[in-house]
Amino acid sequence: MRDGVIMGYFPAFLKLDNKKILLIGGGHIAYEKLVHLLDFTNDVDIIAKEYSSEMMHKIETMRLGYAKRAYKKGDISDYAIVIVAIDDIPLQAEIFEESKNYKCLCNAVDSVDYCDFIFPSYIKQDDLTIAVSTSGASPAMAKHLRHYLQDLIPQSIGVFLQEMRSLRKSLPKGKERMKMLDEKAKKYIESWSN
């Protein structure tokens, strides 16, 4: 909060290459977080006392590292990001405080006081990713807006983005390239309403 105004979350897309992630929890919410993470990386380890059958199936299918035990202090020391998907609020707070010692980003599910970042509602279609957030005010609104936006995006977006990527690589940098690519993107989006 600054000058009485609640500050929102800064939108950023993190490159997860070479960034290990620890997910703490083995229930339904942990499973949902895992599914979202797997859209972007498979360098995820999990610690939980108990695992749902869907979580175990995903762990085995994706060959993820896991431990069936309670969280122990120091477990997060080698991770860049930790997701705490458990109902134990005091433990969420403890892990959040511990994360500061290791300079890793922490997200505690449904506890914004223990979050360095939040999971937005998002659309991932090939190279296109659109994130929607209400800064925690209404996750339901973010979800419904995501559904609305998803219905607007044509299935051909992946092919178009591959073509744009190839053009960016093959054409010399400069104003002419920028103008041509801008016009091509504009025409593609205008074609959606036809």
Results as ranks from 00 to 15, higher is better:
127 D>N: 12
155 Q>T: 12
26 G>W: 03
79 Y>R: 06
92 Q>H: 10
56 M>T: 05
73 K>L: 08
35 V>D: 01
61 T>Q: 04
8 G>V: 08
133 S>V: 08
26 G>E: 03
93 A>S: 10
193 S>C: 02
3 D>Y: 14
97 E>H: 15
99 S>G: 08
181 L>R: 02
153 I>H: 04
173 K>P: 02
33 K>Q: 05
47 I>P: 01
30 A>V: 09
29 I>K: 06
133 S>A: 10
48 A>C: 07
16 L>T: 13
148 Y>I: 12
31 Y>N: 09
21 I>V: 15
86 I>G: 02
14 L>Y: 13
173 K>N: 09
38 L>I: 10
19 K>S: 05
74 G>W: 06
120 P>D: 07
54 E>L: 05
15 K>V: 10
18 N>K: 15
27 G>L: 04
168 R>T: 00
56 M>D: 01
31 Y>L: 09
128 L>P: 01
100 K>H: 08
57 H>P: 00
173 K>L: 11
70 A>G: 11
57 H>N: 08
93 A>F: 10
20 K>N: 10
93 A>P: 00
91 L>V: 09
22 L>I: 12
193 S>P: 00
15 K>A: 06
192 W>Y: 14
121 S>C: 15
153 I>L: 12
32 E>Y: 12
91 L>W: 02
182 D>S: 14
76 I>K: 01
132 V>M: 05
101 N>C: 04
71 Y>D: 01
64 L>V: 13
74 G>P: 03
128 L>E: 00
107 N>R: 10
92 Q>T: 01
75 D>R: 06
145 L>D: 02
42 N>H: 12
50 E>W: 03
150 Q>H: 13
189 I>H: 04
85 A>S: 11
58 K>A: 13
126 D>K: 15
121 S>D: 01
75 D>G: 09
187 K>Y: 12
166 S>R: 13
181 L>T: 04
68 K>I: 12
107 N>F: 07
162 Q>K: 15
189 I>R: 13
174 G>Q: 08
7 M>H: 07
167 L>W: 07
109 V>W: 03
143 K>L: 08
104 C>P: 02
86 I>L: 04
190 E>G: 01
125 Q>S: 12
172 P>V: 10
108 A>K: 03
43 D>H: 09
99 S>V: 06
120 P>G: 10
40 F>G: 02
135 S>H: 11
22 L>H: 03
138 S>W: 13
126 D>S: 15
147 H>D: 05
107 N>S: 06
119 F>A: 03
68 K>H: 06
99 S>A: 14
156 S>Y: 04
86 I>T: 04
125 Q>L: 14
125 Q>C: 09
75 D>T: 08
111 S>K: 14
95 I>Y: 02
152 L>Q: 13
155 Q>R: 11
185 A>L: 08
152 L>E: 09
44 V>M: 04
66 Y>K: 06
37 L>G: 02
7 M>P: 00
94 E>V: 05
61 T>F: 15
120 P>Q: 11
171 L>A: 10
143 K>D: 00
5 V>W: 08
151 D>K: 15
179 K>F: 01
52 S>Y: 06
59 I>S: 01
89 I>F: 15
184 K>Y: 15
77 S>P: 00
184 K>D: 00
137 A>I: 14
83 I>V: 15
67 A>C: 06
